[in-house]
Amino acid sequence: MKPIYTFILALVLTVIVAPPTFAQQEQTDTTAVPPASPFHLKAQFAGGIGFLSVGVGRTLFDEKLETDLFLGYLPQSIGGDRIVTSAIKATYVPIKPVQIKTVNWQPLRVGLQVSYTFGSDYFATEPSDKYPKSYYGFSTALHGSILLGGQVDLTRVDRLKKFAAYYEFGTSMEYLVSYIQNPKYLSPGKIFNLALGVRMRL
């Protein structure tokens, strides 16, 4: 269970620290304005990975793709159980941002997330000493989610240029499968939940 997770983590870190080749090209023609850093920090409220989570990530392909690594915490007083979660997220921005006065609005962002819940209550793969092969056929520690959202960049706001606020509707694969199999009782409103966050460019 742990090697898989380490591999995923390593993969993300490789992407994050890889040199941004396209940014170097930009440097030659815009010497006056330093290029925006592809790296950022995020803080997020809710979204299935804790009450509060913090993330680090970078943009790729002319800001069309974003990858993040999150660590989230849910205290027992709020969640009924103390839960620590980490997650990797990839977000694709298919539409160009809309300029509204001093801000830029990304009206559509679609993403995929894989989260890992820490603790002995959860298994990434079924422990072979406890269950016959494929007894349950799912993981209780790893959850995939699909995300749909948007972001407001404070691009032309004095002193807040580096900041953006985002919102994200997400649902886990477990909920999605449940909805597909139970279209009468379940609905998108029942399975999608909202996450809110801020992003700061480095």
Binding site: G47, G79, I83, D121, H143, F192, L194
Partner: peptide, 14 residues
């Protein structure tokens, strides 16, 4: 339209 607007974790006990 979201029933429970925010979900902190699929294993939260709220």
């Amino acid at each position: 339209s979201c029933d429970d607007l925010f979900e902190f974790h699929p294993n939260q006990i709220r």
